[in-house]
Design a protein around this nucleic acid. Structure first.
Lengths: 137, 137
DNA sequence: CGGGATCCAGAACGATACTG
DNA sequence: CAGTATCGTTCTGGATCCCG
């Protein structure tokens, strides 16, 4: 077979949405999971539900502000749910929704690709960056 | 089966990279394809090689600046190659590299998920946004 | 035609301090 | 514990003009 386009990546899908960021499903999803912390948070929630401070512990580099914001984004899109236990002090648990679980396989596919091909990408970058700028001596 | 984590999404993959954006494969890949135009450009190149102006025609919303920048990024990462034909005026063709082709299936998986679940996400957002802010009357 | 250079607005993000 | 509020910085992307 020569030059087949994988299903789901056809150009017409984007064109149907008219490139409008509000209407384009791909841009909406990429804007969410392409941000700095969502994919990582998703993966942390994939194993099991986690409390806020637990997430913060296992993702040390994230600030509370960004963790909150990331979780709100997931909650807003219906990918995760938030459960408050009125203990003292309060504890809040986040868990993936059924919808949220369905994104794990496709996301995992991309993650696997990244892990597998990153060495080659790094080499490509090194080569590219070492190239003399056009006209350079 | 209860609560299995899909392969390739395990938390330890991130932890192994120490969350360092420079070293983390997932962040590197997501930073690239998560940007505003890369996924769309990739999809445009999936069908067949395209010339610069051709890409610009079929993705009208992108500026020349961003199209150039996006293509440079793909080239740098070894996902696409650039071929200059010294005609007059010059014409430049871009095409996916073998490595670039391998990203299409996983990316396509995510695109398909986006297309399929965007309606539900929109409903979730509408519900979330309609919720009274905590403490609102 | 296929860019590069410059400028600028807005968004994303980090650090810090405060709160129920 | 689980946030919110505020501030400052950095990064992204759009507009415009110029060039071979």
């Amino acid at each position: 077979m020569s030059g087949g386009v994988p299903p789901g990546l056809s150009f017409s899908e984007w064109q149907a949405a008219g490139f409008d960021a509000t209407a384009c499903p791909v841009r909406n999803v990429l804007d969410r999971i392409g941000d700095k912390w969502t994919a990582l948070t998703l993966s942390a929630l994939a194993e099991r539900p986690r409390r806020f401070s637990e997430l913060h512990r296992i993702i040390p580099d994230i600030s509370k502000r960004m963790l909150t914001q990331t979780l709100r984004g997931l909650e807003r899109d219906g990918l995760a749910t938030r459960h408050v236990f009125p203990t003292k002090p309060p504890s809040v648990e986040y868990r993936l929704s059924p919808l949220g679980r369905t994104v794990l396989p496709p996301l995992g596919g991309l993650v696997a690709w990244a892990a597998e091909n990153f060495p080659e990408i790094r080499r490509a970058r090194a080569r590219f960056d070492a190239m003399p700028e056009t006209g350079g001596e």
